[in-house]
């Protein structure tokens, strides 16, 4: 814009004409900028399931990658309230959120689930409650999920025994942190994933052998890609770009930052599970 105005100020002739041209240039530049911003589609990301907090890197890497496919950007959120407040009243967006969170807000926001993340080809995961001592009756629980999400899981997982175990929750950044908190004495129990426990078997077999699985939850879908119904058709190019990430080495690397290795479309049984979760 500076360049345009610079040329206009050097325009020979009438001062009034220069003024008019200058105004036109400013209006044009502002309009172009406004349209460019308005046309940008944002992927809003919040996961109640894992405390992914590498937001700066995540935004940078995803924005760089998505720009290749269109005017797209990622906007991560660290808390549920801000995330939900931000999408309210908007039409043109894509969401990345946990299946549990989707089931809580899909009706109010008229959302459609398009894809589910995969890990080792599986789109479902299981939450487990582990401890070093299988006779443990309570104590601090380490979890990488939000407190609301953790409580919801524990209630489902433990049913009548929930009150017995319902003790303080220590939110840690990652599932592997939750496991190590139990292993190294910072918590008595950990709510984590079966996948994280399998990883522990490879990286620290001695610690793995000390872990006892006390309870296992129902299988739930991994991260969900959802869109508002009104944007379902227009959002397809972006959904396709997300879906194809796994077939591109750079895209796979970005997916790794979400703890995923691919995306799969949902079949009717997935949708039913998701909506009755």
């Amino acid at each position: 814009m500076q360049r345009i105005t610079h040329h206009i100020t050097r325009f020979p002739g009438d001062k009034r004409l220069r003024g008019i041209l200058g105004c036109c240039a400013v209006v044009l530049a502002v309009t172009i900028t406004a349209f460019a911003a308005a046309d940008k589609t944002t992927i809003y990301f919040y996961s109640s399931e894992t405390s992914i907090n590498n937001f700066k890197s995540l935004k940078m890497e995803f924005d760089r990658y998505l720009t290749k496919f269109g005017p797209y950007e990622l906007q991560p959120f660290s808390d549920r309230e801000s995330f939900e407040a931000h999408i309210k009243g908007k039409d043109q967006y894509v969401l990345l959120l946990s299946s549990w969170h989707y089931s809580k807000i899909y009706k109010d926001n008229a959302l459609i689930a398009e894809l589910a993340g995969t890990r080792k080809g599986e789109k479902y995961q299981r939450r487990i409650l582990v401890a070093k001592d299988d006779a443990v009756k309570g104590g601090r629980i380490a979890s990488a999920s939000s407190i609301q999400h953790t409580n919801s899981y524990l209630k489902k997982m433990l049913r009548s025994n929930y009150e017995l175990v319902a003790t303080p929750i220590l939110t840690v950044p990652k599932d592997i942190d939750a496991l190590m908190s139990v292993g190294f004495g910072m918590a008595r129990l950990a709510l984590t994933t079966k996948n994280a426990l399998d990883e522990l078997q490879t990286i620290n077999p001695t610690l793995y052998q000390k872990m006892k699985v006390l309870a296992e939850g129902e299988a739930s879908l991994l991260l969900i890609v959802a869109v508002p119904e009104r944007f379902s058709k227009d959002g397809q190019p972006l959904i396709a770009a997300i879906k194809n990430m796994a077939s591109d080495p750079e895209g796979r690397e970005k997916l790794g930052m979400l703890g995923l290795d691919g995306w799969q479309a949902l079949d009717p049984s997935d949708t039913l599970k998701l909506e009755t979760q």
Partner: peptide, 13 residues
């Protein structure tokens, strides 16, 4: 381990 990237808080590139 590409799968461990979700555990990385900051990537320097």
């Amino acid at each position: 381990n590409e799968a461990a990237l979700s555990a990385v808080n900051q990537i320097v590139e």
